[in-house]
Write a protein that binds this DNA or RNA. Structure first.
Length: 125
DNA sequence: CTACTGACTGATC
DNA sequence: TGATCAGCCAGTA
């Protein structure tokens, strides 16, 4: 039970289906720490050291735009990989989270029980 | 234990 | 539309 927050992040990110994405903030929120988006970013920066591969490119900034973080080529590569999964980006280089953002089943259930099910219901498929 | 560091985010300018 | 500022966080030195 001493799984580190980072490991939980990797586990969740690995569950994101192809063609779907999550934001740093939503990942943190899904793990019970709505204000830990920054820590999520730090973890993604080291996902290469994870025991199993992590689809880091399926995690982007809150605006639906790929994150930079120093390397200006990463966002480009990220978009390329996501487009290969069917995701479409607008001229500003952002995708519509209302369509592609994935809501973890466990969290989705909680949302439905609560009240606002906004984006949780309009997810495709 | 304290200090510093980011692939964050929303508000401001 | 783009740059800056100030909170928030877990991991690392």
């Amino acid at each position: 039970m001493s799984k580190t927050f980072t490991e939980e992040i990797y586990a969740l990110v690995r569950r994101i289906p192809s063609g779907r994405v999550m934001t740093y903030g939503s990942v943190a929120e899904a793990l019970g720490r709505p204000r830990a988006g920054r820590a999520v970013g730090t973890a993604m920066a080291r996902c290469g050291e994870a025991s199993k591969p992590v689809p880091w490119y399926r995690v982007m900034g809150a605006g639906g735009k790929p994150s930079a973080g120093g390397d200006s080529r990463r966002p480009q590569k990220q978009r390329q990989l996501l487009r290969a999964e069917g995701i479409v980006f607008d001229r500003a280089g952002a995708c519509d989270l209302e369509i592609y953002e994935w809501i973890p089943p466990s969290l989705k259930r909680r949302v439905l029980e609560g009240k606002s099910l906004a984006s949780a219901e309009i997810t495709p498929e």
